[in-house]
Each structure stands twice: as C-alpha cells, then as structure tokens.
Nucleic acid binder design. Structure first.
Lengths: 336, 336
DNA sequence: TTGTAAGCGTTATCAG
DNA sequence: CTGATAACGCTTACAA
C-alpha cells in the first residue's frame, strides 16, 4: 500500500503519534488548533488511520454480516436494503454472504465470522431445523445474532419474521370462499421453516373448512425455472386443481406462465394467490393476488434489534419473536 | 470477545506460537502430525486466527467493496449476485455500500475504503461525470477499481458495461419501423452516463429515420413511483405519444400502469419498449418488449477483472471498456 | 521441524 | 494539552 502511517505523519508535523491519534478521536483532550493542523496535513497526505490496527487495538470492527440463502429476488433485495440503510446510519459496514440454500456454505460463512471480523450477524436460515451446531460458534464467540424471515427454532436469538401462518391461513381461506375445491400448495421445501409454517396455514384452513387434506396436492418444486415449469405441467394435468397457493413468488410466476401457455383461464378455471414482494403484481396478466410481506421493514427491524444489542454491549439477542404482518391483496387472479 | 488467542492455544499445546501459526498456513514447514494435533485442539477451543491481526501483519484483507447507487431493483441484485459469487469462489469477503444516487455518499464510502479495509472496489457510479476527485483517493492508496454499468469517463479504470448505445438505437428503430411517429424517451436523468448514452441511441435512430428530434419528448422523471406516475400522466395527455422508450424498467412500469388506467391500448395506441432485467416481462399485461442487459454476467465479469488485477498484484485496472451485448426481446407491447 | 523475537499501525494509560 | 510506552494477535525471518 502506498499508505502514509501515523508515525510518518507525526514526524512530518513534529508531534507524537499519540497527539496525532487524538486528532482523529472526538473525546480526547487536544488543542483545537493542533487538531485542525493535524487534520489538514493528514488530508494533504491522504492519511487515514489503518482500520486493522484500530480494530486489533480495541476489538471493534464496526462491521456486521448478513447471510441470506439466495440473491436476486425481490424479498431479499428489499430486506437487504433495509439492513444496509440501518447499518449505514449507525456507521457500520455490511458484509454480505449468500449460501445458495446450502447449510454447509452457511457454516463456512459463520466460521469466517468468529475471528472478530464482525460484531454481529443478521441471517435468514438456509437449513432445515437440525444440524446447526455451527451457530453455537457465534454464541461461543459472543457474536450477537438476529434472524429474519427464516430461522432455527432451537437457536437462542431474536427473530423478526412475517405472520406467515396467519397469512397463509387467510390466503387459503380466501381461495376456499372464492369457490376453490382442489387447491394445490406450491413450495420449494415443505420442511424448512417458512415452507412448513405456510403449509400449516394452508392445511388448517382446509381443515376448518371441512376439506380433507390431499397430500398429493402439496407440490414440492425446485429453484430452477424450467424444472418448476415441468413439475407444474405434469402436476396440473393430473391433479386438475382449481386453486393455487404458492409459498414463494417464483412458483406462482411459473404457474401463471403455464396457465397462459395451456389456455387455463385465470381466475375462471383456476385461482391463484402467492407470497410476493413484487411491486408489479398489479401489472401482470392477470393482476396477481399476493400476500405481501414487509420485506424492507423486516430487514430494517432485524438490523434495529442487532444495533440495540450492540449499543447495550449485549453478546446475544434474547429469544423473542417479532411478527410483522403481511397483507393479503386480492386482485384479479383470485376473484370469483 | 470470549476469544482464545494463539498464545493460549500454544501454551495449552506446549508449543510456540509460531508453530501454531504455521498449522494454519499451507505452505509452511510443519510436521503433519503436529499440524493435525494443533488443528484438532483449535477446533475444540473454537480458535481461529484473528483476522485483524493477520491483516495488519501482511496488509491483506481478502475483502472487496461494491458500491451501487440503489438497491432493490432487478439489475443491481442480479449484478450483485454475480459479484458475490465471484468473490466467494475467490475466497473474498464482500462489503456492500449503497449511495442512494448521492455522490456525497459515494465519496464518504470511498474514503472509508482507503485505510486498507478493502483490496479492491467494484462500483456503479452515482454522479454525473464531474466532481469525482474522491476517486483519486483510491488511486493514491493503490486500491484497484472496476466500474460496471455506470462509470466516469475520465477515471482510469476498467469498465464493464452494456452496449447501451447500440441497443437503444435498435430499440428506437424497432419502434419506428413498427410505425411510431411520436416516441417519448423516459429517463431519470439524461445527463448521467447511462441516461445520456441511451438518449444518444434514441436521438440517432430518430435522426437516421429522418424524424426531427423534439426535445419535449424527452421526459425526465424521478425515482418515486407516485411522482413518475404523475409526470407521465401530465406528459402523455399533452404530448400524445404513440411510442415509449424507457431507459429504466421502473419508468416503463409506471407507463404501463398509466396506460392500463387510462385505457390507452398497448400496442395499438402506443408501443412500449424498455431496458429491463425482469424475468417476468413475458407475464405482464401486455407482455413487455425489453432490452435485456446481462446483469448477472456484468457483475461476474467486473469482479473477474478485479480479481485478475488482484492476482497480478496490480494496483489499478487498465483503462479499457468491456461491452456486453444486450438483447432486444420483442413482445406484445411493441408489436405492430 | 520448531522456537525466538521483531514488528505490522493503532490507541489507552500514565506521566509530565 | 502533549509525549512515551505497552499492548492488541499474528506472522515471518532467522536461529537452533
């Protein structure tokens, strides 16, 4: 690095390193004019304190990490936006890690965070509810953790998530009252936290309406667009559903595409509702009924919880769940 | 931090700190069995080398920074995905900074990167082409920089961007040959790099078709959905356009919404084409013609350039432009 | 193959 | 208000 360091700067100024150091802190006793002179020359020389030395000195990194399962969908980018904004206004730096839905990756990332790199972690879980000893590392290293959206139930940490059960129940009930009898549930993985919770809302709504649960109507998909399409094509042709409740946006989009291709009329032949953070659901053909999660707010709040803990010097966040309510927005795709 | 350090670990093992340190490096001379024993006990005690101490020692942070103007749109999340993936496979950490289209913020972020925090920067510019002395800081501190999408022409760095001029020309020409006579150009800011380049394609296409440029048809919008809507409403009612070319997705979506609301038939009354990375353009009402930028690839390539430079120990990236071609996908919204 | 020791750039403490 | 000094935890010559 073509870096000037504090020693050189001090030498050039005819001062000690301590005095120079003080110029960069706000609380220290220092002659205002000395301070000003130091800052001016520092500016000229392009000096600023090496953060690794500082961090090493007082084990503060002013950095948080965000771990998410995937990237490039509306939900996570909006949540991330909320987190980043919160971090920025708290003067923190934000490291971002993607797991691609792989718990192994998650573990790798977590491990890389236990050497003081970050002061706290915000994450949306990738795994299934078992196998997360890797999170104990954070506890051991006293790095506070906050979950958002997807979480591990047995890990002690604050959770900020949506009222998925309730909204799923509501969405399913809405389909039922709109006349649907054979409602399929589309999900990536019915065992992970959100897939599971949302399914529970679905099954309970069916149950309460006196509709027997047909396991065949629960369709597990993948993350790949072509695969999803083919799975749905196959499933729709054999199952003849008249309603679709999709746990994630991507699945609903493929369903929509399939219906358009196959001439299945929405909402006449089939009604469709899904979880989605898309801001153009109203422009789709037909306009899509959605359960809209407050993604931005979720990120913002989760980060807020973390920074509160950090301010209080807490080494963990209390086991506590913050439920943000989602909104069921009925549009053409599920009108009766 | 409840951190074990190398000294304690060494003591517990009856070894010196150097030997322990060697166990964590791959190249050093060390007895394999000693190494194994060290690693095992380290695991037990939850030890891993403090990265700030390491970074301080050999001024390597294994971290890059990404600076983007905004968050939560398809383009940047996909680009980010490409960058993150590249970083991950190179064993680097990724810091993310958002400027909210504010050059001041950009400067603040840049400044915070010149103390060794990062080894390189990938950024999409927020400013207008002047006023970027703040980037000299990176050069002074020998931190290599790569631009993607939006750049500053006078800054020496590699640029990875789309062939915006060509695609804009093509898109506009397509509208013209589809019969449009009064094509409006929607843009957030016609002076910044992409807004400007895309406008050039638009004006040249008009020109080559013998259509006189009408400045009134260039409509500058904001970033706010309601404001955009109102601006367009006003503009459309007075200008009566029969074609729309939007420099960014968001503007086209508002145009679409407006037309839907006002009963302006697309493509009969008005044809619409826009830059967009949406993967559901085909599902819109009507299916939207788009210029699709290779966002993911752009991020991936930009990061690739940076890591190449890093591997070669270069302190800068050469002034050089990589143009990735966009694809004009004609759908219903602009069919004649 | 292992140990010793210097030093990376800062800052808190203490003394002046 | 300013200066000297030790320490943060690690790595790498160099010595053994």
């Amino acid at each position: 690095m073509g870096q000037v360091n504090i020693k050189e700067l001090a030498a050039k100024l005819g001062l000690s390193t301590s005095t120079v150091s003080r110029a960069f802190r706000n609380n220290s006793d220092i002659n205002p004019s000395t301070k000003e002179r130091i800052l001016r020359v520092a500016e000229e020389l392009g000096y600023s304190p090496n953060i690794y030395a500082s961090s090493l000195r007082d084990s503060k990194s002013k950095t948080i990490a965000v771990i998410i399962p995937e990237f490039g969908n509306n939900f996570f980018s909006q949540a991330l936006k909320g987190i980043e904004q919160q971090a920025r206004s708290n003067g923190y730096h934000t490291l971002i890690y993607v797991t691609e839905d792989d718990v192994q990756q998650e573990a790798v990332h977590i491990r890389s965070m236990c050497n003081g790199r970050v002061e706290g972690v915000i994450m949306s879980a990738s795994g299934e509810g078992l196998n997360h000893i890797h999170l104990n590392l954070l506890k051991e290293h006293q790095v506070p953790l906050v979950f958002f959206d997807r979480f591990y139930e047995d890990v002690e940490a604050t959770i900020v998530t949506g009222d998925d059960y309730k909204s799923s129940y509501k969405a399913t009930k809405h389909l039922i009252t709109s006349g649907c009898k054979r409602i399929v549930y589309l999900v990536i993985n019915k065992h992970i936290s959100i897939g599971k919770t949302r399914m529970q809302g679905y099954t309970d709504a069916l149950n309460d309406a006196g509709i027997a649960l047909d396991e065949a109507l629960i369709i597990e998909c993948t993350n790949n667009r072509e695969e999803i399409y083919n799975i749905l094509k196959q499933a729709f042709s054999t199952l003849k559903p008249d309603g679709v409740f999709a746990a994630v946006e991507r699945l609903a989009m493929s369903a929509l595409r399939l219906c358009n291709d196959q001439g299945i009329a929405i909402p006449q032949d089939l009604k469709l509702v899904c979880f989605s953070c898309s801001d153009i659901a109203d422009l789709l053909n037909p306009a899509l009924s959605t359960v809209r999660q407050p993604a931005y707010e979720m990120g913002f709040r989760a980060a807020g919880v973390l920074f509160d803990a950090l301010k209080k010097q807490q080494t963990f966040t209390p086991k506590h769940i913050v439920l943000l309510s989602s909104e069921l927005i009925v549009r053409t795709s599920s009108r009766s």
